[in-house]
Design a binder for these strands. Sequence first.
DNA 1: TTTCGTTACGTTAGTCGTAAAGATT
DNA 2: AATCTTTACGACTAACGTAACGAAA
Lengths: 295, 295
Amino acid sequence: METRDIEILLTLAEELHFGRTAERLHLSQARVSQVIRKLERRVGAPLFERTSRRVKPTPIGRRLCHDLQQALDLIQTGLARAEAAALDTGRALRLGVMGILGLELRRLVDAFRDRYPGSEVQITEFHFSDPFTPLRTGQADLHLLWLPVREPDLTVGPVVLTEGRVLAVAAGHPLAARDSASLEDLGDHLVVDGGAGAPDYWVESMVPWRTPSGRRIGRGPSARTFHEVLSLVAEGRCVSPLNAHVTRYYSHPGVVFLPIADAPATRWALTWRTAGESAHIRALAQTARDIGAHA
Amino acid sequence: METRDIEILLTLAEELHFGRTAERLHLSQARVSQVIRKLERRVGAPLFERTSRRVKPTPIGRRLCHDLQQALDLIQTGLARAEAAALDTGRALRLGVMGILGLELRRLVDAFRDRYPGSEVQITEFHFSDPFTPLRTGQADLHLLWLPVREPDLTVGPVVLTEGRVLAVAAGHPLAARDSASLEDLGDHLVVDGGAGAPDYWVESMVPWRTPSGRRIGRGPSARTFHEVLSLVAEGRCVSPLNAHVTRYYSHPGVVFLPIADAPATRWALTWRTAGESAHIRALAQTARDIGAHA
DNA sequence: TTTCGTTACGTTAGTCGTAAAGATT
DNA sequence: AATCTTTACGACTAACGTAACGAAA
């Protein structure tokens, strides 16, 4: 008898309804039926009387649920205690960020250090040219990535930052004189190319392949890091959509940043390998949820 | 965290040795390592300090083991209680036997009824032509089968009967004048054919394909039930090895039974579908173990 | 006829073993 | 070198979902 089975049994004893039980546990109704049947065969007696109208525990079932509820509570509190203790002794959590963005996470990191004085967070910088590899190779425990992230092995956690987008153009560029740009303008110029390390859907969400009206957006020279992008833009070899926070940290005489009026907001979320989830990771994610996203 | 994982953790905490833990739980050493590592990542702290010479629980590990031990005990006692209650309310256990053999099980059935007055055992007869199907289709909960039984989905339980073998021949048959037969004699005559419902290894163990010296044993007409066999033998169309208990219940004027001096003993064991194992089945098997096998 | 629970079957995720590598004495 | 744990990889079991079926009101 596995704890998963116990959880299903107890939920059914509460809900008294196979469908609602399945829904609460994100299972199919059939699965709930199978598990209960398996338990009944294991025990050797029916645990519920059921018709299509009513589900009611038998005396044996009721008694078993009572015992198992206690056991499950014990497991959960024991685990919670161990996790709490672990947070006082753990090694540093490596939090990946792209470019200068680590500075924007001060509030989160301070709040986390405040809650878990025994834990440490280490900010590590990675490049947008290969966004998921640091997590997969274990170079980072979490990574701050812009959404959408649709990778089956990764969990997308809370959104911690939301910001607008700007277009970086050379100071002498025709657009530089305007005080805002639009996605449609991208059709008239080359944009920086991010290389092949990231999946198309992810690049597309930041640097689209087509303007809203359907014109193709041309790819210019490629860059791996933010500084390389800035250089290319300053040389006038291309333009590049960027996230608004760069305007707070960079001012380059040869580059002008124009708000892109019709670009969707960029949402930055904590992301981690599902298989690598740990108490530390959950703690940081929960801290992020609690302090909320801020522009 | 599943109960299987808890069991592994607790065993390791007792043995303080990955290899012995694996052995006790019939697992590979690697698997133990994997599970512990998974738990450690889940908790977020090492649960054991280990070198190739020593395994020692950390304080967090020790504390967690203590909590989980209690939980596991609770699950097991709760389950045991439910099973005990089930034995008082259960439906009849259907015990399959071949031919007249049910009469030989009186002692077992009486002992079981004595121990579990709320339970019932119902003897059901099946044919040797298709020995495993009754279990697989659910027509029987247990089946008394001669060994060896090598079916991946079936569990072989205790041996409840052991007996010698006899050769059934027609009264007028040349062998009928002798007072014993040997396996070598089978090479001179046709034996009854059991049909294709049973696997070869199982048929072979009762009616071999070759004599000890290697001569081929010819197959005669086929029969599905014991009575059919007896008819064929009486008609002189074939001979047939049988189990010795038949001499206690059958005396047919046209048939003579000769002990087969060099045949191995037949061992009859309770067998059931592994997936269908229940408290009732375990109770009957345990009763059988306790009263022991008898000739 | 609708509402549930059950059964049948195909897919997939995770368990487990094998074999080889890595670490410690 | 010997002993024990960890890692890598492939096979297989069992968990799970989908869809069709069956029973009850």
